Amino acid sequence: MKLCKLIKKRILVGSILTLSIFCVGCSNNSSESTLDKDTLIVGIDDAFAPLGFKDESGEITGFDIDLAKELAKRLNKKIIFQPIDWTMKESELKSGNIDLIWNGYTITDERKNKVDFSVPYLKNKQVIVTLADSNINSKSDLANKKVGAQSESSAVAAMEKEEDLYSSFNGGGAITFEDNNQALMDLEAGRLDAVVADEILVRYYLSLKGEDKFKILEDNFGEEEYGVGIRKGDTGMVDAFNKAYKEMQEDGTLKEISEKWFNKDITIKIE
């Protein structure tokens, strides 16, 4: 019996020691800055045109992609674009599976509790889009209508702030999809009455599908700004990003990339 107790005690002590070493390792990893890495892994939604998406050949392209490549070059880093489940973006960042969230990522107070943000680089609105012949002409007309949006998106968060209106939708809330393209395709097929999504994405989608088929309402669910999500507490990466962004602004690189995708400079200027 004494021998059994001794063996159990040694096993317990060994387990505690192993766990302690593991935790120390975790702590050390969490304190490392993204700047210590040679390669940056950027988490994206690869169906968010024109910011980050797959072209006809399957290559990932877009405004945010060009911006990220240029910034990585200035930080002397290699870069990998990793498509992720957008509903898990903050978890992917926190766990270290990705180093940056960069693809039309709206800055919100709620998200500031989970990540640190770069300076804002683009302005956006959450717009309401319907088919051209729809009788929906204002937000109030959305009552009892089927309204679509991307799951865990800023569009859903913006609608939820208007509780009475949101709960009046058919089904008691928005019908959510894995990405905005699926929602917009359901709208085009007549399975939805309206979609709420980022204006930048909607206008690009309409330019490809035919703007005469749709209408964007004057009413919207608010203006917002895009930023890059950086691991909480990684001030080194935040400072390096903001410095490189300002340099790109001052030497005209931002303007050049913006004009390539939007035919004008729509980037946010920082002092």
Rank of each mutant, 00 (worst) to 15 (best):
L3A: 15
L3K: 14
K5Y: 12
K8G: 08
K9G: 10
I11R: 15
L12S: 15
V13E: 08
G14W: 12
S15W: 13
S15R: 13
T18D: 07
L19I: 13
I21N: 11
F22R: 09
V24D: 08
G25Q: 11
C26K: 12
C26G: 05
S27V: 15
N29H: 14
S31L: 15
S31I: 14
E32W: 09
L40C: 05
I41K: 15
V42M: 08
G43F: 05
F48L: 14
P50G: 05
L51G: 11
L51P: 00
K54C: 02
D55P: 03
S57P: 01
E59R: 12
F63R: 10
I65M: 03
L67G: 00
R74T: 05
R74S: 02
L75V: 08
K78V: 04
F81G: 00
F81R: 01
D85W: 04
W86A: 05
M88N: 13
E90H: 06
E90K: 02
L93A: 01
L93S: 01
L93P: 00
L93W: 00
K94E: 13
S95D: 10
I98T: 03
I101R: 01
G104C: 06
Y105V: 01
I107H: 00
E110F: 11
K112H: 04
K112D: 03
N113P: 00
K114M: 02
D116M: 02
V119W: 04
L122M: 13
K123T: 10
N124Y: 06
I128G: 00
I128D: 02
L131V: 07
A132T: 10
S134Y: 07
I136L: 07
S140A: 12
D141R: 14
A143R: 15
V147N: 00
V147C: 02
V147E: 02
V147K: 01
Q150C: 10
S153V: 13
A155V: 12
A157I: 09
A158G: 07
A158E: 08
M159H: 08
E160F: 04
K161V: 05
E162F: 09
E163M: 09
E163I: 11
Y166M: 03
S167A: 10
S167I: 05
S168E: 07
S168V: 02
F169C: 06
G172L: 13
G173P: 11
A174L: 12
I175F: 12
F177H: 08
E178D: 10
E178Y: 05
D179K: 06
D179A: 04
N180L: 08
A183R: 09
L184C: 10
L184Y: 10
M185C: 06
E188H: 04
E188D: 03
D193W: 04
V196Y: 04
D198G: 06
D198W: 04
I200A: 07
L201A: 03
V202M: 04
S207T: 02
D212E: 14
F214I: 05
D219F: 08
N220D: 12
N220E: 08
Y226G: 00
G227P: 03
G227Y: 04
G229D: 05
G229C: 08
I230Q: 01
R231W: 02
K232Y: 09
G233S: 12
G233D: 13
T235W: 00
M237W: 05
D239T: 13
A240L: 10
K243N: 12
Q249K: 11
Q249P: 07
T253G: 08
T253Y: 07
K255W: 01
S258Q: 11
K260I: 00
F262Y: 15
K264R: 14
I266S: 11
I268H: 07
I270W: 05
